[in-house]
Design a binder for these strands. Structure first.
Lengths: 148, 148
DNA sequence: TTTACTGCAAACATTTTGCAGATGT
DNA sequence: ACATCTGCAAAATGTTTGCAGTAAA
């Protein structure tokens, strides 16, 4: 099953209608290998389909965010962007500053580190977010991506 | 030396004038144990001094951000806030959702984890940001903060 | 006297909302 | 029929900018 279908299914499972607009947003979101802003999505949407309103994009994105199918993240520039992601496990994002591609990174050992910080500080830590920014292999190494 | 003085000194060292407005911002920023938004700062500033413009607040905050005396962070709600911090070492922030207090957390073992992620993914990681949100001991435990 | 700083208001960018109409169930 | 969804335009936010005046070097 491809990602577009997964997103649409998530909508249906949550009791939302898989309307043409929402399908479009799902498709656009899935077509992105990386992050995108609401404005970009609107522009791409309008290229495919004449009628889709800004508000609809934002509403669909809110919906998908609440279903954890996409996540909102903050670029180093301060701009807000979204990335598609796996709703089932806690993870973080590694974003390429070159091409915008984004990969999920498992929480892994971070959980231990967070627990340790909790112990040391006395805080009850309820949420944590790790954002990683860098250059992906293919942006770094021309075509091959092999590091010399 | 107190924090207000440290901030003013950082401005002077970088060649900026320690004007009354900037001193005010330094004082307001230092008076905050935690995070604050630009709007809050403006309001507090106006309570002390009738004349200070929104733009001046933003400009001062940008300045302090570029000097790494404050850092801009993104609350889970998506709102932008600022926290005072130590310009000399790489660290992260632990923010109390109750009172807004914020503490610096040393990068510590995170560096290793980041290096490992870099190795595994092939990305050249240029920046990373860890944001922790939780409840501080005094918000959690009533007055004493002792966990039972 | 030359440059840095400031307030103001306007410009801008981004996101949200109210609402009447369209669409899906 | 009924609830959900949609586009639009207006409103609410949040931030930046142009500029003329003020203060500092």
């Amino acid at each position: 099953m491809d990602q577009t279908a997964r997103i649409i299914q998530a909508l249906e499972r949550a009791g939302y209608q898989p309307t043409p607009n929402r399908r479009l947003v799902a498709r656009l979101v899935a077509a992105t290998g990386g992050h995108f802003t609401a404005a970009e999505l609107l522009e791409r949407g309008r290229r495919e389909r004449v009628k889709i309103g800004r508000a609809t994009i934002f509403r669909a994105l809110d919906l998908l965010t609440s279903l954890r199918v996409v996540e909102r993240l903050d670029l180093p520039t301060g701009a807000h962007a979204y990335v598609v992601c796996d709703p089932d496990e806690h993870h973080h994002h590694l974003v390429c500053s070159g091409c915008g591609r984004s990969e999920d990174v498992a929480d892994g050992e971070l959980a231990e580190l967070v627990a340790e910080i909790a112990g040391r500080s006395g805080y009850r830590i309820e949420a944590h977010r790790l954002e990683l920014f860098g250059i992906c292999p293919s942006c770094a190494g021309g075509a091959s991506g092999a590091l010399s």
